[in-house]
Amino acid sequence: MKYLITGAAGFIGSRCAELLCQQGHQIIGVDNLNDYYDVNLKHARLANAQKSELFTFIELDLADREGVAALFSEHKFDRVIHLAAQAGVRYSIDNPMAYADSNLTGFLTVLEGCRNTKVKHLVYASSSSVYGLNNKTPFSTSDSVDHPISLYAASKKSNELMAHTYSHLYGVPTTGLRFFTVYGPWGRPDMALFKFTKAIIAGEEIDVYNNGDMLRDFTYIDDIVAGVLQIQDVIPTPNSEWKVETGSPATSSAPYRVYNIGHGSPVKLMDYIEALEDSLGIKAKKNFMPMQPGDVYATYADTQDLFAATGYTSQVKVKEGVKAFVDWYRDFYNV
């Protein structure tokens, strides 16, 4: 089949592209290669995917309506995996306007492309951040997500609403995946593991928020990508018996589904840091700080629906995953 992967120079997108090429699919990868973080890392990820002749990269900003429309019209994709977004909860506190073009307009151009060219399945990235003020754990897709606490989270909730509209009005099959704290080799420099590793090796302090009293459902990159590739084969169909009053918000009378994708077993932040210290062989200098705006105390995924649909289970435990990241980091940066 022919796939479009948006955010193809990104952490998850580049790995999805590699594996789909290995399976014999043709991949068109797009990315705007913005400088939110190190563009050299993005190019290095792309180089991995470009080892396959089945991968073609196109530099394109999804806010370019005409450009995206032309892309869809020319290639007639079978399926779309939409992972491009302006990421980061904390960045959205100080730079809210950065999220409008990427996460709202960019998603709308993709939806329009899917509608106009009759794409068979759109899988897109949502986020665990949509759970916002929800304190009930584990987080379930049957829970309300009407109280986000960052603009990033609000933009991801908006994506789910926009997808449902297109599924309902135009019959576009859409599946949203709420990712839970993805980490591993080739990860983003703005995320904790990357920042901690860089600082510890340099002998600098690491900022530990909420005095380290936090839980995260850390999910290894290979587990995430396996789930993405499994679910894109499960194309949602309308459920004629579904009703708003009694049905789960994760499904619909339209061809629409939302799933959690995470490890399903939260880890204490201090245990995560200890695993990193063990892998590095260096004790971290810690600067304990209060909770940051937009952060939540705990994330914890209920992945039963995804398991029922695909058989998905996470395989990689934190100590193993952190060591794999450290090994990659030392090799990539020669430190």
Rank of each mutant, 00 (worst) to 15 (best):
R90A: 15
Q292S: 10
Q230H: 02
V326W: 01
Y272F: 14
Q292I: 12
D223H: 08
F55A: 03
V322I: 07
A17L: 09
E112G: 00
K118N: 14
Y3L: 13
Q26D: 07
T299V: 06
E66G: 14
A63E: 01
D331E: 14
W242M: 08
G262A: 05
G113N: 04
V39I: 14
V267Q: 07
F11S: 06
G171S: 15
I93C: 08
E274V: 04
A49V: 09
I224K: 02
A298L: 11
I5H: 01
W186H: 08
F288A: 04
S129H: 07
K317G: 07
G311D: 03
D78M: 12
N95D: 07
N210A: 09
L54R: 14
L269C: 10
G311N: 13
Y3D: 02
R216V: 05
N48S: 12
L177Q: 05
G212Y: 03
D94L: 12
E18R: 14
D31F: 01
C114G: 01
D61W: 13
T105Q: 13
S128Y: 10
F55S: 01
M1C: 01
V119L: 09
S240D: 13
H147P: 09
R257M: 05
D213Y: 10
G247Q: 01
L41E: 05
Q292F: 15
S167C: 09
V39Q: 12
G106F: 01
F55W: 06
T310I: 08
A163T: 01
V326L: 07
L111W: 00
P249S: 02
F55Y: 15
M270Q: 14
D31C: 10
V130Q: 05
G264P: 02
F57I: 10
